[in-house]
């Protein structure tokens, strides 16, 4: 049982006295395979039934590229917006208690539970020019519903709770004392925030960003109602998958799905690794 860890054996654990690695790891991988990996393998297999040329034709046409670009760009922007707003909201909720805070805290999770189609309908009702907010925006010349801006609103709605819920516990655990020590040493509020608070909550912000992005890039139900769905302008990639399916073109639909999946998986993996690096350097730097 001595140190065999130096070899590049995947999934081989470091020796530990805690029991149950074999059982839990085995169960996890089995369940993961049944529910996630085998179904996704079917997706890849169907996409692979296309030849390389057909695969490229199915995924690299201008319209598909425009849709992929729209999906990825809007979900990255929306995730950034969610991260800023979500981090801010989490901070206020934890540090600045106000009457009714519990209730406000509660409704943050509404986008989780509201069916996406209902969210889409409700947002469209609000942000269309006939709606409460859309009418106001129209007066200052902004069209929200049925434009890419509408997509952004829907994605921020979907992504916001992920950021708040990841950052909130970290802020709750933040030590007042470190901040106070910084203040005693003459740091300004801004310096304390930037040098003490921000580095501590940064990993959580990154996680929140990742989750918001991951959720947003494939989002369908809430977006189609508000998007406008014009090809090359406001047509998202998941809608294109649906369109291919309606044409009974399964292989092409799965090809687009595979491209999306690989892109977002690479993104998730990169962020995960980055985060572990961040955590590791913070620990060793102490």
């Amino acid at each position: 049982m001595s140190a065999v860890y130096s070899g590049w054996i995947p999934f081989k654990p470091k020796p530990s006295v805690i029991p149950g690695f074999g059982l839990t790891f085995g169960l996890t991988v089995t369940w993961l395979s049944l529910i996630v990996l085998i179904p996704l393998a079917a997706l890849f297999a169907r996409a692979a039934s296309l030849g390389p040329d057909e695969f490229i034709a199915a995924t690299a046409s201008p319209r598909v590229l425009a849709a992929l670009r729209l999906s990825f760009v809007t979900s990255i922007i929306a995730a950034l917006v969610s991260t800023v707003l979500g981090g801010f909201i989490a901070w206020v909720l934890v540090r600045h208690p106000f009457p009714g805070r519990r209730f406000v805290d509660a409704i943050i999770d509404v986008p989780f539970a509201l069916p996406t189609a209902v969210a889409g309908i409700a947002l469209t009702t609000l942000y269309a020019e006939t709606g409460w907010l859309g009418g106001l925006l129209a007066q200052i010349g902004i069209k929200a519903a049925f434009t890419p801006l509408g997509i952004l609103i829907a994605l921020v709605f979907i992504g916001l709770p992920f950021v708040v819920r990841t950052v909130q516990p970290v802020i709750e655990d933040l030590d007042h004392e470190t901040e106070e020590a910084a203040a005693c040493l003459g740091a300004s509020r801004w310096q304390t925030l930037r040098r003490i608070v921000f580095p501590t909550i940064a990993p959580a912000l990154v996680t929140g960003f990742t989750l918001a992005f991951a959720r947003g890039v494939g989002e369908y139900g809430s977006v189609i109602f508000i998007a406008g769905n014009l090809p090359m302008v406001s047509e998202i990639a998941p809608l294109l998958i649906v369109i291919k399916l309606e044409e009974f073109a399964y292989a092409q639909a799965t090809a687009i799905a595979v491209v999306m999946l690989c892109a977002s998986f690479a993104f998730l993996l990169a962020i995960n690794i980055l985060q572990r690096r961040m955590a590791a350097s913070r620990v060793s730097g102490r």
């Binding site: 020019e129 519903a145 109602f225 769905n229 014009l230 809608l239």
Partner: peptide, 19 residues
């Protein structure tokens, strides 16, 4: 201005959203 995915969606966009 808006391409809905189904006939009913289109009708609702036209009537309810005023597009």
């Amino acid at each position: 201005p808006v391409l809905d995915s189904g006939a009913r969606g289109s009708t609702i966009t036209f009537v309810q959203r005023g597009i």
